[in-house]
Write a protein that binds this DNA or RNA. Structure first.
Lengths: 73, 73
DNA sequence: GGAGTAATGACACTCATAGTCCGTTGACTT
DNA sequence: AAGTCAACGGACTATGAGTGTCATTACTCC
């Protein structure tokens, strides 16, 4: 599966666990609201700097972010 | 520390473990040799699609790639 | 010393796309 | 009706993708 979709699904999963809206997470990660929608739906090939901000906003470590079913072979 | 530098260091570390030159890894990941140099030296804010190709070339999982000292808080 | 080779580094450049900002729409809730 | 949320679109600017060129370092061989 497309890495963009995997990342998007993982972000959505974690966002919902935190009870945040897309906009709230977007603000926390300092990205645009519409951009966050695209990311979650796998339409954006995000850079590691933006990914880092989103992971921080999700209050999770890199290792834990990627240690999920989406990223298993 | 800058996420770009962390990623670069981690790539270099894994590349050396495999005994590959930058050029050999670059070819395996289908990126330019000079691009790989820039990545390892933290000068490129790479996208997840390119990162995926490099991680595959390093024969490692996402989780293991990020489960390293560089990415610990 | 000088010639050759392999590996890396440092730029500069073009072109595609990452990322922002404006808005609208539809589903759902109160 | 009014508010919240997700999705989508168009236009725009900033920056990543990808390549070319030259320099440097370290090594080997003559």
């Amino acid at each position: 599966m497309d890495i963009k979709l995997k990342v998007g699904q993982r972000i959505k999963e974690l966002r919902l666990q935190l009870g945040l809206s897309q906009e709230a997470l977007a603000n926390k990660a300092d990205v645009d609201r519409t951009y966050m929608t695209d990311v979650e739906n796998g339409r954006r090939n995000i850079s590691v700097e933006v990914l880092e901000r989103i992971i921080m906003a999700l209050e999770i470590s890199y290792a834990d972010f990627f240690n999920a079913k989406e990223f298993m072979k």
